[in-house]
Computed example of a mutant assay.
Amino acid sequence: MSCYEILDPRFADLIDPVAFLETIHTGNRWAEGPVYFADMRCLVWSDIPNDRILKWDEETGAVSLLRGHVANPNGSTRDRQGRLVTCMQGERRVVRTEWDGSITVLADAYDGRRLNSPNDVVVKSDGSIWFTDPNYGIISDYVGRKDIQEQPACHVYRIDPATGNLAIVADDFAMPNGLAFSPDEKQLYVADSGYLTDRSAPHHVRLFDVENDRLINSRVFADISPGIPDGLRVDIAGNLWVSAWDGVQAHHPDGTLLGKIRVPEMVANVAFGGPRNNRLFITATTSVYAVFLNIRGLRYPFGF
């Protein structure tokens, strides 16, 4: 049975009708934050409640522990030098793993108060790091460490590549979550998943124009249902691939829902990878899935 649900004829051009949804690994408690390493042909992802980062070797299919006891890791990406940048919910910080395995803290506080629980992160081509900071990791001990919230709200932040200074770039979200730049980096998509804990809150993706180090002209790009938008990625044609409770939704740059990849578990995040960057990796509750598409994804960051 096909895993595809075609809602707009344009979706047929993005999928391969003979490709199928594969299970890469199972046995997680909440799989999140997939990142593909093209230079090492491997995928790494977070298993948040189990407090670990796992690694899948594309050539052998072997899964191994990359790092354990790492403070409930969530979203990750790579920086311009190819180093892993990770949101550590339990430690309420964004960190970078150096090539020797040591850890550099990039952000853990704003205006003298600890961050909430950094959730997802992306690196722009100028080296700036943009991340979201909802409070999911401090409202329970399951995916973080229950604690008081010191920030007055949940924001989107930017780390300056030259100074390391932290600045708020969006301050009106309920729960900012996944984020991704458009192919030309002139726009930024940010998910608001407030509906997860408050049924009166948003479950949509917002779109901003990027003006140097600022976000302007906020508007709702698409409402995501069922459930909430979580992690998201953009392909080379500018289509947005968004996680949802029934699978992965593909949206045209004009916001139209083109179709869905049906997944048997609630999806948390996605990442493009494979030698041709046309394989979509999907982290969904207990499992990691993958499917080959007829479109290539953007590489984050460019060149890796």
Rank of each mutant, 00 (worst) to 15 (best):
S2E: 15
E5L: 08
I6N: 02
L7V: 01
L7K: 11
F11T: 00
D13S: 15
L14D: 08
P17D: 07
V18L: 14
A19C: 13
I24F: 03
I24N: 10
I24K: 11
H25I: 04
T26D: 15
G27K: 13
N28H: 15
N28R: 05
E32C: 09
A38I: 05
A38W: 09
A38Y: 10
M40G: 02
C42G: 03
L43C: 04
V44H: 05
W45Q: 02
I48V: 14
I53H: 04
I53L: 11
K55C: 15
K55P: 03
A62G: 02
S64T: 15
R67Q: 09
H69F: 06
P73D: 03
N74T: 04
S76C: 06
T77A: 04
G82P: 07
R83M: 03
L84D: 02
L84V: 03
V85G: 02
V85D: 03
T86K: 00
M88K: 02
M88F: 10
E91Y: 05
R93G: 01
R93T: 04
R93L: 08
V95T: 07
V95M: 11
R96W: 04
T97F: 15
W99A: 09
D100M: 06
T104A: 12
V105E: 11
A109L: 00
A109M: 07
Y110A: 04
Y110R: 11
Y110K: 09
D111G: 09
R113N: 13
R113Y: 07
R114S: 12
L115F: 11
L115T: 02
N116K: 08
P118E: 03
N119Y: 09
N119D: 10
D120G: 06
V122Y: 11
V122C: 13
K124I: 01
S125H: 09
S125V: 06
D126N: 15
W130Q: 08
Y136W: 12
G137I: 11
I138P: 10
I138T: 04
I139A: 01
Q149T: 01
Q151R: 05
C154W: 01
C154H: 10
Y157R: 05
Y157G: 03
R158C: 13
G164K: 10
N165M: 12
L166I: 15
A167E: 14
V169W: 12
D172K: 14
M175H: 12
P176S: 03
G178N: 07
A180K: 09
E185T: 02
L188I: 04
Y189Q: 06
V190T: 04
A191G: 08
A191Y: 12
Y195V: 03
T197W: 14
H204Y: 05
F208V: 04
D209M: 10
N212E: 15
N212K: 15
R219V: 01
D223Q: 03
D223Y: 05
I224G: 00
I228K: 00
P229K: 01
A237T: 03
S243Y: 00
W245M: 00
G247A: 01
A250Q: 00
H251S: 00
H252C: 01
G255Q: 07
L257M: 10
I261A: 00
R262A: 06
R262N: 12
P264I: 02
E265D: 14
E265V: 08
M266H: 12
V270A: 00
F272P: 13
N278A: 06
R279A: 01
R279T: 14
I282H: 05
A284F: 11
T285A: 09
A290P: 07
L293S: 04
R296G: 15
G297A: 12
G303P: 13
G303N: 12
G303Q: 12
F304D: 14
